[in-house]
């Protein structure tokens, strides 16, 4: 699946729910299934210090593709990062660096994108893109 197809799939998944609580129920489930970062990798340099919940992201570059694992102490934050990983995991650094993650506003999560938002989705997106850019250097 291309990045674009993965984004569209998420948009379609969310379109089923018109109630906000159902959308969040889904996000919470995703959070529970997130491929967890190894405990030993929960180091400060992998920590994204949001205002409220803490997020760790680890990236690996293998056979031309990027792979991500993550964790957070808040389950909704975990669910949101799981969505990001679902779209970006296994992609080339070039693709990740240039992708417009339009699915976020499309499923109504743009409120999490504001710079002061507690869970720092914006910082997570940045972190994943920076990881890709590092590889390209």
């Amino acid at each position: 699946m291309t990045i674009e197809e993965k984004q569209q799939e998420i948009i379609d998944d969310f379109a089923i729910y018109d109630d906000w609580m159902d959308k969040y129920e889904y996000i919470i489930e995703l959070g529970k299934d997130l491929p967890l970062i190894e405990e030993s990798k929960k180091t400060d340099d992998r920590l994204i210090e949001g205002c409220q919940s803490r997020v760790w992201v680890a990236s690996e570059f293998n056979n031309g593709k990027m792979h991500f694992t993550a964790d957070s102490d808040a389950i909704i934050t975990k669910g949101i990062i799981a969505l990001l990983i679902r779209v970006l995991d296994g992609e080339t650094p070039e693709n990740i660096a240039k992708t417009d993650l339009h699915f976020i506003p499309a499923i109504g999560l743009q409120e999490h994108l504001s710079p002061t938002r507690a869970n720092g989705l914006l910082s997570m997106v940045k972190r994943l893109k920076i990881a890709a850019l590092e590889v390209l250097k």
Binding site: W20, M21, Y24, I28, C51, Q52, S53, D73, A74, I75, I76, T77, A118, N119
Partner: peptide
Amino acid sequence: GIHPFDIGTLLDKQGIAVRTGH
């Protein structure tokens, strides 16, 4: 066992404005 942010987010979606965090 539940992060305050998670509770605040779900309360918000039910129309209830609280504050979470420090």
